[in-house]
Amino acid sequence: MPENEKPLARIDRTDRKILEQLQADGSLTNQQLAERVGLSPSPCLRRVRALEDAGIIVRSVTILDHKKLGLSLTAIILIGMDRHTPERFSAFEEQIGQHPEVQECYLITGQNADYMLKVVVPDMDSYHQFLLNYVTRIPGVSGVHSSFVLRRVIDSTALPLDYLS
Results as ranks from 00 to 15, higher is better:
93 E>M: 10
42 S>E: 13
49 R>K: 15
78 L>I: 07
92 F>Y: 04
68 K>P: 06
51 L>G: 05
42 S>L: 02
108 I>Q: 06
48 V>A: 09
85 T>S: 09
64 L>D: 13
50 A>R: 13
89 F>S: 00
72 S>E: 03
48 V>P: 06
41 P>G: 05
102 V>C: 10
83 R>S: 06
60 S>W: 15
51 L>N: 05
75 A>L: 05
38 G>L: 06
41 P>E: 11
42 S>T: 08
59 R>V: 12
60 S>I: 12
36 R>C: 07
47 R>A: 11
92 F>C: 01
47 R>S: 09
100 P>M: 01
95 Q>R: 15
89 F>C: 01
57 I>W: 05
85 T>A: 02
87 E>A: 07
66 H>E: 15
35 E>T: 05
68 K>T: 05
106 Y>I: 08
83 R>N: 01
45 L>G: 01
81 M>V: 05
68 K>E: 00
34 A>G: 00
91 A>P: 07
93 E>Y: 08
73 L>C: 04
57 I>C: 03
68 K>N: 03
47 R>Q: 10
107 L>V: 13
108 I>D: 03
89 F>Q: 02
48 V>W: 07
68 K>Q: 10
52 E>V: 15
78 L>R: 06
43 P>G: 00
71 L>P: 07
51 L>A: 08
51 L>V: 08
87 E>C: 04
62 T>W: 14
96 I>D: 02
47 R>Y: 03
46 R>Y: 07
89 F>A: 03
78 L>F: 12
99 H>E: 11
86 P>A: 00
60 S>H: 15
74 T>I: 02
93 E>F: 13
67 K>W: 08
54 A>K: 14
54 A>G: 10
64 L>G: 11
107 L>I: 14
101 E>H: 02
105 C>I: 14
49 R>S: 14
68 K>D: 01
34 A>Q: 01
46 R>F: 08
69 L>E: 09
